[in-house]
């Protein structure tokens, strides 16, 4: 790991002003992606501003039809939250399937979505449920937030502080894990929301998480696993690697969509 300077932020303003003064600093959440990347010498931030200890970012609250999850909430916290389980069970179940127990104890929702790993689960959760990402500067709809692989709409120095999830009428998540890494090879979140059916796919696409219009249409007409049969996914948009062809991933998108509906 390259040299770096560590700073533990006490508040959001402390964190953003600290980062602004660094040469090439990064926010550090639970570090479950950033630390391994630094260990592989693939990232060399001059400074790490640790936001995982900011108390204001560790709350989960439910107000009306909105579940707000602070950016520093760990996956374990979300998975174990009775409020989340009651309001949006699919989100609790998604969080409970991220990584392994030790990773869930450290990894945070803010870190996960700010990184926008194409195989991460939360991007599908946010996009599928139509969440709003709250930063220190503004609110960004998930539809605009996830730009591409490892790319988000966040500006330089902008920090995710919370994610607001609207309650869904029905929602389910189904994940086909990569056998080796256990990241999502295909993860599908399907939801009936106030704004219609939304289907988001992570892991499979060659440009990160995406919404699946054909599945949305099919499930909008008939909310059942059967409705996903015969809905095709363009192989040209799929990743291909030693774990599976684009054809296989495209096929799995349909299967996982059906299972997501079954899980809803």
């Amino acid at each position: 790991m390259y040299d770096t300077t560590y700073y533990r932020a006490s508040s959001v303003s402390d964190a953003t002003s600290k980062l602004a003064g660094t040469e090439d600093g990064k926010f550090l959440g639970g570090g479950q992606t950033l630390i391994p990347t630094m260990k592989q010498r693939l990232a060399a931030p001059s400074d790490l501003v640790d936001v995982s200890g900011i108390d204001a970012l560790k709350n989960i609250s439910v107000e009306g039809d909105t579940v707000t999850i602070g950016a520093a909430c760990t996956h374990a916290q979300v998975a174990g939250s009775s409020e989340v389980a009651e309001a949006i069970p699919a989100l609790a179940s998604l969080a409970n399937g991220i990584g392994d127990p030790a990773v869930r104890a450290r990894g945070t929702i803010g870190g996960s979505i700010a990184n926008n790993d194409p195989a991460a689960d939360y991007p599908a959760g946010c996009l599928g449920l139509g969440a709003t990402i709250v930063t220190d500067a503004r609110e960004i709809p998930a539809d605009e937030f996830f730009v591409g692989m490892f790319e988000t709409a966040l500006d330089e120095g902008e920090m995710v502080t919370a994610v607001k999830f609207p309650k869904a009428t029905k929602a389910g998540y189904a994940k086909f894990p990569n056998p080796a890494s256990r990241y999502a090879m295909v993860g599908v979140l399907a939801a009936q929301t106030a704004n219609g059916v939304r289907v988001a796919v992570t892991g499979a696409g060659n440009d990160g998480v995406f919404r699946h219009a054909a599945l949305e249409e099919a499930l909008g007409a008939n909310w059942s696993a059967d409705a996903t049969q015969g809905v095709s996914t363009d192989e040209g948009d799929m990743l291909a690697d030693i774990h599976g062809s684009a054809e296989y991933r495209a096929h799995l998108v349909g299967v996982m969509a059906g299972r997501a509906v079954d899980n809803s």
Partner: peptide, 23 residues
């Protein structure tokens, strides 16, 4: 991924290879 480094920090199992000592 291997978990040979798991310790408890404030009562929770974590991977000590994926956490800075400073944290």
């Amino acid at each position: 991924q291997c978990g040979a480094c798991v310790v408890h920090v404030d009562g929770q199992a974590v991977k000590s290879c994926t956490m800075l000592a400073a944290a």
